[in-house]
Amino acid sequence: MTEGYFQFLLKQADTRFEGWDFSYISDTGRMATEPFPWSYTNWVLQELFHSKSMLDMGTGGGEYLSKLLPLPNFTAATEGYKPNIQIARKRLNPLGIEVYEVEDDSKLPFKEAQFDLVINRHESYSPAEVNRILQNEGIFITQQVGGTDNVQLNELLGAPMDFGYAEWKLAKAVEDIKAAGFTNMESEEAYPLTRFYDVGAICYYLKAIPWQIDNFSIETYESQLYKIHKIIEENGYIEVKSHRFIIKAVKK
């Protein structure tokens, strides 16, 4: 059964991924991540309730932002991944939220001091540009994927790692944000464990995040994937270490 089931799982991984929605493997219990010691949403809501103007950077398909209703009277979103833009607009435009396509983090299509709150979950950013579009005493909240996220997947597959990105840690982000003119920072960093309960879930996940392994394909890594499949059959899952950090900063 092992070989046939392995091929079945690989075929399931061909299911289309769109927006920024991992429910195909998370809601079905095929992947589970240990809880973080903080709640990004709680950090956001503490500022959102008195905000009058907010930007969501890297909104994906707008899935997360649409769940934060009611939103400030002026709320906007950006997205840089072209396949997501129409998905986000379809979801957010009816709520009165304009979605702006962004190709350069240092050139956002907004006026100076246009927002009192900027939120960012797992999206790149320019600290100086965020500072420019924030009002004085405005708040920037970002949760980031750290540079050592899930490196065990690379190791298990014998895939090269981006060692330059490995330097992306809380200390570096705080240093950059301070240099851009922010103060009164709160921050946390954590390495929660993520479990994958079948090899198809791993393939689906890696296809959705192409920066983890360049040019990932099932054909290229099939023999290594089969070894992982055997490990999961024996142990019930494989476990890898994630890397996340969160920062809240105030514009001086």
Rank of each mutant, 00 (worst) to 15 (best):
L95G: 07
G58Y: 11
A77S: 08
P160E: 02
P70T: 06
E98T: 13
G62W: 03
D162S: 13
E103H: 11
L108V: 10
N154V: 04
G58R: 09
K172Y: 05
G58D: 10
N150I: 05
A88H: 10
D104V: 07
A166Y: 12
A77Y: 03
T183L: 00
I119P: 05
K111P: 11
G181H: 06
G138M: 04
K172M: 10
I133N: 07
D105K: 10
V102R: 02
H122S: 02
A179K: 15
M185A: 04
P94N: 01
D162T: 12
M54C: 08
E98M: 06
I87K: 06
D56C: 02
L69K: 14
T142M: 12
V174W: 00
Q114F: 00
G147A: 01
G62F: 04
F110E: 09
Q135C: 12
E63G: 09
Q86E: 15
Y64W: 13
S187I: 03
I87S: 00
L153I: 14
A171L: 13
T183A: 01
R121M: 12
N184E: 13
K67V: 00
L157D: 07
Q144M: 13
N131Q: 12
E63V: 10
S66L: 09
A171I: 14
P160V: 04
N120T: 06
A179W: 06
N150C: 13
E189R: 06
P109I: 01
T75L: 08
N184Y: 06
K111D: 10
A171R: 11
E129I: 06
G80C: 03
K172W: 01
E129F: 07
V102E: 03
K90T: 15
L65D: 03
P70H: 04
S106L: 02
Q135A: 13
N136G: 03
F140Y: 15
T183G: 00
S106A: 11
I133K: 08
L117S: 06
E155P: 08
E63R: 15
G158K: 07
Q114I: 00
E79S: 05
F110D: 09
K107T: 10
E63T: 12
D116L: 06
G138Q: 06
N73L: 14
N84S: 09
N136I: 13
D105R: 10
R89D: 02
K172E: 12
E188M: 14
P70N: 05
L68E: 06
S126L: 00
S126N: 12
L71H: 08
Q152P: 08
E189N: 03
P83I: 02
E112M: 03
A128T: 14
I119N: 04
R132V: 11
Y125N: 01
P160I: 07
L68M: 12
L68S: 05
E155Y: 02
G96Y: 01
N154I: 03
M57W: 04
E98I: 11
M185E: 11
E186V: 12
P127F: 02
K111F: 05
Q144F: 00
I141D: 02
E101S: 10
G58P: 11
Q114C: 05
L92G: 08
G138S: 05
L65F: 07
T78Q: 06
D105M: 14
N184H: 13
